[in-house]
Write a protein that binds this DNA or RNA. Structure first.
Lengths: 278, 278
DNA sequence: TTTATGTGTATTGTCAGACAATATTGCTTT
DNA sequence: AAAGCAATATTGTCTGACAATACACATAAA
């Protein structure tokens, strides 16, 4: 019943690579500390921690720890502070810590064993295509590099996905694509436009008929997220981009895979230009 | 600090789409039941559940529940039995159930709210490229379809990844690739060979210089996992496949992106043939 | 009747404290 | 010096309690 981790080869071994960095403190002593615990009444429960208003404790905790790991505070192989320590640091219960850690384990950022502790997994195991991990990852290096990586990935994926969509889309899927495209053109605000843009590309992925392509949508969302600041408001550019989108829509509608692929390549090249020129 | 879920557009709403299927029972009444609780002494703790010897309780639980979800026992939108129910069903503590559920939430299979319960997320949110989810997914439909999907994905990814590897690989990365290729040729058993084969392809992904390509290695692993049964033992085929691999290795070594890409396409076509002919 | 308001209640969220399982570490004995 | 053994630290698991939340229903007001 247990999923077959990796290939048959069960060369599973003790975490021999873990560096014994006991009671490891974060690398960079930027010390997140409590960013001024001012307007907080004394004696109240749950004093510090990176509490986020709307979110549950374990979710916030997972975000905080996950971010630190991805950011490189605890390099792969190091042993994290133990559960009691986290519990104390953030003034939360051990259960909350455990649930947070379980979330990070599910994303393959961590693994743990009794008497050893929890250590950071090697980077190539990280599930970088996970929404959260990607978001954390996006904050660490300068945006430039991240955006370039994502954009490169889009070049690999989207042309082919679109070609498949042109071959296999259902009428219903086509309707979604067309509507998103139309709404892009009619959008009043830039935000609304970006929204429709995202829907457009996600709909194409769904229409590709390959289930495995769908989860890559997070990359596109992330790209638009970070592209937003770059986006030019020049009307000419917007019109041009709109035409490129419409070309894609048309070729999918007419079921022309090759033309659709080419159209996507053009759009991506255009986006590349926007990034480069900034 | 909280990762920006999706694009800016916070059209976050109450789970309006959840079907109110209270105390939902699994769809298919295949009733996994306890598959004969024979050789188990009476009165012992933790009687049934899908306990897996080596694994922790919450991990086993997550596997069991995750498999059921992916398999379609609880379609997207349905509300799962509550924590107490699971706890009772599997005779484990509520904490264990919660930790398991947190793992599934981290993979976006579930979400939950107080007073509502936990519901299955829409399929397009599932993190299908996660190791575990992929493994569960691989068990559900017939292998044919799954393999075809994965293979199609490889056609999209690997040629481009290899071209990048040819351009950007370091000497160290090249050494890994070459060694894996060599070990493929020298492998004594089929299993050993598959092992090296996997390493070969993963090394190429790593050498591509695009961090986002690395996590896709799980797909390759999964492919080989399921391809294993198909693998022919005919010496001619093995020799042929080996030559194709060596061609790839050579073109990466000589830094010829286009030739490398073409070589990978050939190899994939060959693999396609193996699948089709079976 | 329709709309607002409050009240009950089921479910997850959080906490606290205990014990079990496990593997490292150092000590003891042969 | 080698082998076995005990001490110990850390995660794993269980139990029981209370808080927070938002649906559902009854009740009251317009």
């Amino acid at each position: 019943m247990l999923p077959n981790r990796g290939v048959a080869l069960d060369s599973f071994r003790k975490p021999a690579f873990v560096k014994r960095m006991r009671d490891a403190k974060p690398n960079k002593e930027k010390s997140p500390k409590k960013p001024a615990a001012a307007d907080r009444p004394v004696g109240v429960r749950r004093p510090d921690a990176a509490r986020i208003p709307g979110a549950s404790v374990h979710t916030s905790l997972a975000s905080e720890i996950g971010l630190r790991i991805v950011r490189g505070d605890y390099p792969p192989g190091t042993i994290l502070p133990n559960e009691a320590k986290w519990s104390e640091t953030f003034s939360v219960s051990r259960s909350a810590v455990r649930e947070a850690i379980k979330m990070l384990m599910a994303k393959s950022l961590l693994a743990s064993r009794p008497k050893i502790g929890s250590w950071v997994e090697p980077k190539e195991r990280w599930n970088l295509l996970d929404r959260d991990v990607l978001a954390w990852y996006a904050t660490s290096p300068d945006r430039e590099v991240f955006l370039k990586t994502v954009q490169e990935f889009r070049h690999i994926i989207e042309p082919e996905a679109t070609a498949f969509a042109a071959m296999r889309r259902t009428d219903e899927q086509m309707a979604e694509i067309s509507q998103a495209c139309r709404e892009m053109g009619e959008a009043a605000s830039l935000q609304e436009r970006t929204r429709a843009d995202t829907r457009f590309h996600l709909a194409i992925l769904r229409a590709s008929g390959n289930d495995l392509l769908v989860p890559l949508g997070v990359l596109i969302e992330s790209a638009f997220d970070h592209l937003f600041t770059y986006t030019t408001r020049a009307v000419d550019d917007l019109n041009h981009a709109q035409k490129l989108h419409e070309a894609i829509e048309k070729n999918i509608r007419l079921q022309r895979p090759d033309a659709a692929r080419a159209a996507v390549r053009k759009l991506l090249a255009n986006t590349d230009g926007v990034i480069r020129s900034r």
